[in-house]
């Protein structure tokens, strides 16, 4: 299956006869403007960042000498407090990825199907998409107050005493809730569009066969939407991996650092303790891990898709 896909890609690039170098330069000109921007504002900073990760680097005074791979090796020193915290934060972030991604894919999938079967589609679509346009600061400002234990509107409404932001597992539940609220709409729109583009006949045929809603959903809809769901899955994984604003503004990483994300840990190292060298090393380790996860996900899904 995969070879078919691969052949298709290779056909695409080799079909055109090899061009002479003048023509190649002409083609290159299309990419050049973007490459200039990339080089200046991303490429160079990344290279610079990589050199910072090989030094002692204090943002106040600059370099404090080269240490080679010392900052990276130090991340594997179990007695070092910063490295302990880094791995703890990484585990926290992974936990968040595992608990948020299923909801970020599953809930929109169910809602999209409901929307497909219901009237007033555009009203619902707007309501569900609306929070996605808000900035992190406004989202967290509202929720940090809605979720207060004693006087927060949510506990007030339910007459409950749930320590939403104060104790585990509630702190993770709250962060997950807010994340789903904030960013689910995007996935919902993609999945909904996917459903509307399915051949009408497949869904109708199912209903003629007398298949119930749930069976149609499980045995027709989900398999047909596999490629779209895989896109949504990868985008959600990358998004969740970059978790920062939700715990930073809701719980401050607490209780007792249990919701401390990698991004926040890197931020604290670099700008709180002025250890920019080790902070950058952490950032690159995180980037490599993220790349590996996306690569594996993309690979397996492509295999299945074919």
């Amino acid at each position: 299956m995969r070879t078919a896909a691969a052949r298709q890609t290779s056909l695409r690039t080799t079909e055109r006869p090899r061009e002479n170098w003048v023509s190649q330069i002409g083609s290159f000109l299309f990419v050049l403007p973007y490459l200039v921007a990339f080089g200046f504002f991303l490429g160079y900073p990344i290279v610079f960042g990589a050199t910072v990760s090989l030094q002692h680097w204090n943002p106040m005074i600059g370099s404090g000498g080269w240490v080679g791979l010392g900052q990276y090796l130090n991340l594997f020193n179990p007695s070092d407090l910063a490295s302990q915290q880094f791995w703890q934060a990484l585990l926290n972030t992974l936990l968040f990825v595992f608990i948020s991604v299923p909801f970020l894919v599953g809930i929109p999938l169910i809602l999209a199907y409901c929307m497909y079967l219901s009237p007033w589609k555009s009203v619902f679509r707007s309501a569900f998409f609306f929070p996605s346009i808000l900035s992190a600061t406004s989202v967290m400002a509202v929720w940090s107050w809605m979720l207060q234990t004693e006087g927060g509107p949510i506990n007030h409404f339910f007459g409950s005493q749930i320590p939403w932001l104060v104790r585990q597992p509630w702190a993770w539940i709250s962060i997950d809730l807010v994340t789903v609220w904030w960013s689910m709409g995007f996935n919902l729109i993609i999945i909904y569009a996917g459903i509307t583009q399915l051949p009408q006949s497949t869904l109708d045929a199912a209903s003629i066969d007398g298949a119930g809603i749930i069976r149609t959903f499980r045995s027709i809809l989900v398999p047909q939407l596999k490629s779209i769901l895989s896109v949504v899955l990868i985008l959600s994984t990358i998004g969740s991996f970059n978790l920062f604003a939700q715990p930073f503004l809701l719980t401050g990483g607490g209780p007792n650092n249990s919701t401390m994300s990698v991004s926040q840990e890197i931020y604290n190292q670099g700008f709180g303790l002025n250890h920019m060298g080790s902070a950058t090393a952490m950032a690159f380790v995180m980037g490599i891990l993220l790349a590996a996860v996306s690569f594996v996900q993309y690979g397996t899904l492509r295999e299945r898709r074919g």
């Binding site: 207060q148 234990t149 004693e150 006087g151 927060g152 320590p163 939403w164 104060v166 104790r167 401050g252």
Partner: peptide, 18 residues
């Protein structure tokens, strides 16, 4: 005092007379 009060809650409840 209640258990599990959130950050800033003493202030919010103070304003509400609680």
């Amino acid at each position: 005092s209640p258990q599990n009060a959130s950050a800033h809650e003493s202030y919010n409840l103070f304003l509400q007379g609680k």
